[in-house]
Amino acid sequence: MPTSPAADDYLKTIYAHTEWQDAPITPSVLAAKLGVAPSSVTEMVKKLAASGLVSHQPYRAVTLTDAGRARAVAMTRRHRLIETWLVREFGYTWDEVHDEAEVLEHAVSDRLLAGVDERLGFPRFDPHGDAIPRPDGSVEREPFVLLGDARPGHTGRVLRVLDRDPMLLRAITSCGIDVGSELTVTVAGPALGDRVIEIPEGAREAVWLTA
């Protein structure tokens, strides 16, 4: 079973793709998300399939097997706990933690991770609003709607903000939006309280609200 950082990144990306929507990931989308060549994806997917971690047929979507999902969830738990730790204990902002956690998640022992979880009070969500899987792999998540899909008149609490673009996260912060903020969708744009705000490009596809 490949347990390299690269293999784990593939599994996490496949898992994350279907957390907030149902369409399975294709090799081309996987390549785009990871920033690698399609040929590299083809090679790694073959290795993962041979190890029983993914299911894939040529020109079809890539899906996790039960073993692959268990590994992906375990690594996702590590990543999100470390992000939460960095924000709460070390003063990192939410736009700084993703890349740091990508490195640390492969170095932290299970014992230290359990200690971090206990010290933080067993958090349920990371700084971006993503659910932290429990040790048994279960995940808690509220019904949600993407900001760009919400109809005018909808009011919801910000559940999650996509964490892959630090510049977008900083721009969203500058608008006063954070996890837990309540937004009302209007024709003129989202409103924070009684104030319609101008959100940055890409925010509609990066912010999820309670349904």
Rank of each mutant, 00 (worst) to 15 (best):
K33D: 15
A70C: 08
K46T: 05
T42P: 00
A37F: 00
A67L: 13
A32P: 08
L34C: 10
S51R: 09
M44I: 01
L64F: 02
P38Y: 09
D22Q: 14
T26W: 08
L34A: 11
H17K: 12
A72P: 07
D22M: 10
R69V: 05
A67W: 03
A31N: 12
P24Y: 04
A72K: 10
L30E: 11
A67C: 00
V54R: 06
T26R: 13
V73C: 03
V45R: 03
A32V: 12
A50L: 00
S39W: 02
V41I: 11
A74T: 12
A49L: 05
P58L: 00
L53I: 03
T65L: 10
G68E: 02
T26H: 07
Q57C: 05
P38A: 08
K46Q: 01
L64C: 00
H17R: 14
A72W: 07
K47C: 03
T76Q: 10
A31F: 13
A16E: 15
S51F: 10
T18H: 06
L30I: 12
V73A: 05
A16Q: 15
T63A: 00
S28H: 13
A67M: 06
L53R: 09
Y15N: 08
T76G: 10
S39L: 03
T65A: 06
R71L: 11
V29N: 10
V54C: 05
P58G: 01
T13F: 04
W20P: 03
T65M: 04
S28L: 13
T13E: 14
L34G: 04
T63W: 05
T13H: 08
A74D: 14
A23H: 12
T26A: 14
H56L: 01
A50G: 02
S40A: 14
P24N: 10
D22K: 13
L34Y: 14
K47P: 02
H17D: 14
V29D: 11
V29C: 05
V45M: 07
W20M: 12
